[in-house]
Amino acid sequence: MVLGIGGIGGIGGMGGMGSAPPPPPPPPLPEIDPEIDPDVDPALERAYNVQQQVLRTIQRRFIDSQHNFKVLVREIILSPYFRAKNASPLTSEMETELSTFGTSRLLTPEHLSRKIEATTGVRWRSGPGRTDYLLGQYSIFYGGIDSDLVTQRVTEPNGVMASLAQRMAYEVACSAVPYDFSKPANQRLLFPNIDRTTQLSDASDQVREAVRHLHDRLLGEGLAGSDEEVAATMVVLMEAYDLGRQGLANETVPEQLAGQCRLFNDRMTGASLPQERHINRDTEYTVRAWMAAVSYLLSDYRYLYE
């Protein structure tokens, strides 16, 4: 119905940038008054017609410029669609017009399971050789199907699924953070530029850069170090860090990691790790503070949806 901007490039073709061979004839212009399904919302129809006008204008200018690609790019960038990001608050009519744009799909248990491994380097399961939770015991609860009793996927999360995602975030962080820190820096996925002995500080550029990297790694967000989202993750990290250190000082927090988080064996293969890679204690509370930050990101909308 309403085309995305990505469709424009095909209108005039891109083969006419040179001058030697005659350009192929342009495809016909879009219908000025196309037939619209009568069930289509009038606001959507208006939006379609407006978009068609814009497309025709861009197409005409592109052709008139002897298929100058720079002109095409400039026209697209100057079009109201390209600049929609900075639009004013939506009216109800605009909501209808924009209702077909964008994607927001809750990842299936199969997708999420693969994403966990791809982004963190560990699998969410009880141990090597075991089935991933999201492919086994938790599959149905996370909206999966068994093609027997459950044949319809749940695409809208519920409380069970939200809790499962929360548990996943805690357990994957518990598994992945010590594991990643135990590797040589050049093999780390989560913490390539920082070590677990690095003291955490709000003022530390190194720590802020590590947080920025986590946003990039886990959420695909390329943020500046000064971005408010980096600052929010720093809040999680530093509040957890401060609480944990107070607890260590007054001996209400154990130095030992929770049993599931302790690292003696390779998370993926089960092979025994050399002594220097063992992580059992967290005397400065840095490992658990980073676990909190990673948990926060693993249960984020942008991690669970695509």
């Binding site: 929010a232 607890g247 658990r288």
Partner: peptide, 22 residues
Amino acid sequence: NYFGHPDVPSIIQREQELRLLR
């Protein structure tokens, strides 16, 4: 809990909700 301190999960959840609102 996994963090050894009872209040850490609530920090995470609070910030999750704030982020979703943002």
